[in-house]
């Protein structure tokens, strides 16, 4: 039996923004799981590494109508225009140091091949990619807490969320040893998913109708009829993706009952949102 799974996965996530309390557990668990280095002073967020970053959104209204929401943002693992795997970052990397896994839908980063040109960072509109400006340093004794399954990164390379790929590898190995062809839904869950106390994050295979993520997202098997670059659009009217109109085709979906939050997912010209807000997804226009 080949260890590679025969079936093509498309791992993705849906985050319920109405459940997210902005507690930051996902960020902490991610840093801890993936040996993400930190600085002594983390006040400058523009050069600190947060594979998972929680953004604060507000509806822009003054008291007493003010509403706040939190939006966790991991790497979007974009499938690129048309979903062919040419994600914004993968297509630009000059040294093939980041690749799109067609068997998993995961965008990987090969740290030992990255030479730190940072073109991928410029290409990513989500700021999901981070550069190691410093050598990674942990307070004395803390090295003992590092995960042995994830290699720490060196100064001068780019890193980002891997969808806890090492967990996928471990799950696959386990299935292989047990003579199974494929992994179960609960065998591969990312650290942020398992850490979220509100259960706001649902992770799984978007290609598998038995998986919860698929059932919530209901990805459209056909390209968007208004924008041929957009594929896998959600057929759930409460679900949206960030910057869907650009054709990056992220595999992170967001869920919210609140219209103002869904509107924040993309950019709209005056009047556009009102025309399409009741249609599913947000990439349609014109």
């Amino acid at each position: 039996m080949k260890q590679e799974n025969n079936k093509e996965h498309k791992f993705g996530m849906v985050i319920d923004l109405d459940k997210c309390t902005g507690c930051g557990s996902c960020m902490v668990s991610c840093m801890s799981e993936n040996n993400v280095p930190f600085k002594e002073d983390e006040s400058n967020k523009k050069d600190s590494i947060t594979w998972m970053r929680v953004y604060k959104l507000t509806n822009g209204k003054s008291f007493p109508d003010t509403e706040t929401a939190y939006l966790p943002r991991p790497c979007m693992h974009c499938a690129g225009k048309g979903g062919h795997g040419h994600s914004p970052c993968v297509s630009v990397c000059p040294a093939t140091a980041t690749e799109y896994g067609h068997d998993t839908g995961i965008v990987s980063q090969i740290y030992t091949r990255c030479f730190g040109c940072r073109y991928c960072m410029g290409a990513c509109p989500y700021h999901a990619r981070y550069f190691n400006w410093w050598d990674p340093k942990w307070p004395e004794g803390m090295e003992n807490y590092l995960s042995p399954n994830v290699s720490p990164r060196m100064r001068g390379v780019v890193e980002k969320c891997s969808f806890c790929y090492h967990r996928y590898q471990a799950a696959r190995d386990k299935a292989y040893h047990e003579g199974r062809n494929d992994i179960e839904e609960n065998e591969f869950q990312t650290a942020c998913t398992t850490a979220c106390p509100a259960g706001a994050i649902v992770f799984g295979d978007l290609n598998n109708p038995a998986h919860k993520v698929h059932q919530i997202v209901k990805p459209d098997p056909h390209p968007d009829k208004w924008n041929r670059h957009v594929v896998g659009k959600s057929r759930n009217p409460k679900v949206f993706r960030l910057l869907e109109r650009l054709g990056t085709n992220p595999k992170i979906y967001y869920l919210s009952e609140r219209e103002w939050i869904r509107r924040k997912g993309d950019n709209y010209l005056d009047g556009e949102w009102d025309k399409i807000k009741n249609h599913h997804g947000s990439s349609s226009h014109g």
């Binding site: 990397c93 040294a95 091949r113 001068g156 390379v157």
Partner: peptide, 19 residues
């Protein structure tokens, strides 16, 4: 400008012709 100057030759050796 590159973060790992000693790996500068990777751009030739591991070239991604689509970049």
């Amino acid at each position: 400008d590159i973060g790992q100057p000693l790996r500068g030759w990777f751009i030739f050796w591991h070239a991604n012709v689509h970049s």
